[in-house]
Each structure stands twice: as C-alpha cells, then as structure tokens.
Write a protein that binds this DNA or RNA. Structure first.
Lengths: 282, 282
DNA sequence: GGTATAGTGAAATTTAAATTCATAATTTAG
DNA sequence: CTAAATTATGAATTTAAATTTCACTATACC
C-alpha cells in the first residue's frame, strides 16, 4: 500500500509553485495538519486558501476535510517520526506550540527506552525495596522530579525525604545508613550541589541511584546505580521540558515497580488515602 | 491504552438519554462517523446537533472535529491490533513495567490533543502575557505541576507564586487584582481547597485559569478559562501518573507560548541564568 | 408545592470550507 | 515579436459546518 505521505512526495515535482509549497509544508509537518484549518495552513505555507483546496484535488482527494482524515489515518498507520518539530518558527501560535510540545514530550519519553539499562533498573528497584529511608535530591528543573518522587514514595509508606535546601539536606545525610537510598537527579550530571551531596551520602554508606543523562559526567561515573535518561536536547527552550519528562518517566517506573511489589500490603492504606481525599471534595 | 470505542461503551450507561442515543449510533457505525457532519449524525441518531457537541465533551473530547479525528485514529489502530499495555499482570518485571509506563505516558500526552480547546488556550496565553502576578495552586499529585510551573514562569521574569500551604495562599490572594492570574490545577476539579481559593481569587477579580479534566466538575464550570486535560484514568495506580503528564504538557505549552512571545526580551536574562548555572558545575 | 438543576433542541452565531472571479504570469500560434 | 490562449493564483464571496445561546421541559431536592 502506498502511503499518502509517499504519494505527496512523488507528485511534488509535478505540482505548480504554490501547490508545491503546500506539499512541502505538509511533508515537513504532517502531524500538525489534521488539526489545522485552511486559513492556518494558508498562512503557514504562504499560499491562498483556494490553492489548498486545489492541492487536495491535485493529489486525488476531494476535499480538505477528507485530506485531513486521510492524513490522520496515514500517520497512525505509518507512525512516521521524520517530522522535525524541534524547530520553532516565528509564526507559531500557542496552538501550534501545543502540538509541538506534545510531539517533543512524546519522543522524549519514547527515547527513554533506549537509554535505560535493565540490569541497573533491577538493581535500583532491589535497593529501594529494602530501603529504610529514601532521599531525593535535584535542583532547578530537576527539583520537579524530586518533589514528585518524594510524594509518590510517601504514599507507598516509605520514609521519603526531599528538600530544595542544600543545608537541610546536609543535616539529613549524616543519618543515612547502608540500608538507605539516596537518589540524585541531575540532567547534566555536573551540578555541584548534587555531586557534593552524592559523595557525602556515599561516604555514609547509602546506596546512590543517579537519574542522569547517559554521558560520562561526574555523577554518571560516581553513582553506584545509574538510571540513564536519553540526551534529548534540541532547542534550548525545549531541552529543559523534555528532560523533565524523561526523569519523571524513570520515577514512574520505580514507583510502579515498588507498588507492584509491595502491592497488597499498602493497598489498604492506599484506599484510606483515597477515601479521605474524596471527603476533601464535595 | 483503552481505545476510544471501548471508552464509549464504558460510559454509555452513565450518559443521558439523548447522549446515549448518539453513543449507541457511534458504537454501531463507527466507520461512518469521521465523514459525517453534526447535522447528519443528528438526523441519523435522532438528537439535536447541540447534544452531539455535548456528547463529545462528555467522553472527554473537546470538539466534534477532534472527535472525528480521534475516532479515525482509533479505527485505524484497532485494525492493526496493538498490544494492550494497560493491563498489568503479576509477573511483570521492572523492565516490563518500564515499557508500560512509557506507553501509558505517551498515550496520555497524545490524547491531550483531543481535549484542548484552541480558543481557551489563546485566552490563557493572552491573560498570562498581561499578567502582573501569576499564582499556581494544586494539591496532592497536582502540586508537581504547580511547582514546575512556578519555577518556569519565574525563569521568564514573572512574579510567580505557589505554595502547598493553604493558609499561605489565603494570605497571597487578597493582593491579587484583575491584572493577575490564578491557575487552579486539579484533575478531578472537585478538590475543596482548590475550589475555595479559586472562588476567593475570582472575588478579587483575578483571571482564573483551570487546568482540569474535561468533565462537568465545579472547577470546570466556575473557571473563566479552561485548559482541559483528557480523562485518562485506567488502572488506579497508573491514573495519577498519567494525569500529571497531561498537566505538565499544558504547563509546557503555556511556558513555550510565553517564551515565544516575550522571546528576545528575556533571552539575555536566560543566558545569564545558564552561565551562572554552569559555574555551579565543574 | 415551590425551587433548583440537569437535559434538550431550535435558532442564532461563529467559524471553516469551497467557489467564483479578476488578474497576473506564462505559453503558444501566427 | 506580438496577440490570443492558457494556466496559476489569491481576494472576495458564498455555502456549509460547527458551536453557542437561550428558552423550554422534565426531574430531583427541599
């Protein structure tokens, strides 16, 4: 079966100037099209709305609406990841950016699969299962993941700690033992505060799990257990948002794994929490 | 991930008379829908066009057009029989769970496209652009999004506030004016604390943006601007993780949109931050 | 038994798609 | 070379679709 995208590429050279412009735009941003109107696409590709209708007919589809549906189907089928959404351009509306964010976040999460090492993951889960305390630490953008993790593991009944305050952390770490886990979160693996606390925790004998990009950073080298996130930096504005998504995906995995394991034991408490939460609603 | 068709079947009993009629028709003739208009479907199913729009919202999709696209995608997918990752089973290893988490998070983010209303998004961006202060509030799992947003908007130079402490928030809100924005984050839209602060902020004249699931919750009804997240609840363990992903995707969109807009103005400060950060590494 | 509240469709409004038409550019015939 | 014919294009208009508003009804709740 010839895909619609392929078809567009094929007929591209035979099209007129304006229609080709549309074809090129569609080929470059297929995922965005189904949610667009003729007006938008006309602005984006720099041709008139009328030409868009003509373009649809040229590639053998009777209406713009049908074209959008056909494209949606095609994309679902072939799941092309050729699109480069990373490039932001001046005319992008909030709604365009929304679709780019969706795309970027999706691919960031997808590429988590590439950087994760199953043995390291198993080690991490093993360590947490037997942990007394769990301490999470991340600064800047990585603090989101730390806060999220702290909350999740508290819900599972762990003594789970995090803080943005370096000095507070300094006072927590001396009490760690080899039964405890210190989770260091840093995309770059070079953040000074994180490194210092990591070494401190290690000195106290705690198991150190690093959630960090897969590269030879100090944190990567020094951590006992490494849960790697992929290097997804593209646009510097986007970089930070996608690295947070990958960190959270790792956290989610740890949470799910532990939940799955402790399972029945915490289920009652879990329901208690939820019913109490319900009563906070009305 | 639960397919849209399955979802329709599930919610069928909870729908009202007229909406159920639509649901049944859709369930019986799914292939026909994507090419239909509201008028046609209204004739076929014997209800008004208005009810069709309401039906879409009831099943968690923001517009009839999005519904058609989502259905098209769904039909294409079920044809090709995707493995069902939604069911967790006993023997799952951490690595299995990791892949399920990836899958669930990806589909949650994907379905954001269905529930977002572009006009509401535009209104939200507009409001934030002209905002003096921005206050974010979310409790429980939604606090992650609030914290993340607060950090991001601070980086953009905004006076951006959040706190987990209800009483602290109580003291912040009286100082809000009609130039300020209050962002209420709650998946269910029923959380008492969030609702109370929302009403309080509204009384002070602040613009209220709700990031909440698309359903007829109090928060949904009361908010001036609604940024809807899709109803992705499946497994109760997974529910919370994916709703956080959708909230963050909305936050990211707001952040990117504002960044895109203020752009050059804050770029210098942005670089300052980054180079200062670098010096915190080594 | 009256007052909210949810559900509904008719009608109005808004928005998107498609068509028409005038104009500019290009080609072709003489 | 020119003039007629053809083609390509976008502005403006028309048509159609989606969405909202509003008023009416039925039902639940005091």
């Amino acid at each position: 079966m010839t895909s619609l995208m392929q078809k567009i590429k094929e007929v591209l050279p035979q099209l007129s100037e304006a229609e080709r412009r549309i074809g090129e735009y569609v080929y470059g941003n297929p995922e965005a099209i189904p949610h667009m109107t003729t007006k938008e696409l006309s602005k984006k590709s720099g041709v008139s709305e009328a030409t868009i209708i003509r373009f649809c007919k040229s590639i053998g589809i009777g209406s713009f609406k049908s074209f959008k549906l056909a494209l949606m189907k095609d994309l679902t089928l072939t799941d092309t990841n050729l699109t480069d959404f990373s490039v932001l351009n001046q005319k992008d509306s909030p709604y365009d950016l929304f679709h780019k964010v969706i795309h970027v976040n999706k691919s960031a999460i997808e590429s988590c699969a590439d950087s994760m090492d199953r043995k390291e993951l198993a080690k991490a889960v093993e360590a947490i299962q037997h942990a007394g305390k769990i301490v999470f630490f991340g600064v800047g953008g990585s603090s989101t993941a730390a806060v999220d993790a702290q909350y999740k593991f508290t819900k599972l009944g762990y003594h789970s700690i995090t803080s943005l305050d370096f000095h507070y952390m300094l006072s927590v770490i001396p009490h760690l033992t080899e039964n405890d886990v210190f989770v260091a979160i840093s995309t770059s693996g070079k953040t000074k505060d994180v490194l210092e606390l990591t070494r401190f925790a290690q000195k106290k004998g705690a198991k150190v799990i690093a959630i960090t990009n897969i590269n030879k950073s100090p944190l990567y080298k020094e951590a006992e257990i490494r849960l790697c996130t992929p290097n997804v930096e593209q646009d510097f504005r986007i970089g930070s948002i996608s690295s947070r998504m990958t960190q959270l995906t790792v956290i989610d995995t740890l949470y799910m794994s532990i939940f799955h394991h402790v399972g029945e034991k915490v289920l009652q408490q879990y329901y208690d929490t939820r019913s109490e939460m319900e009563s906070l609603r009305r």
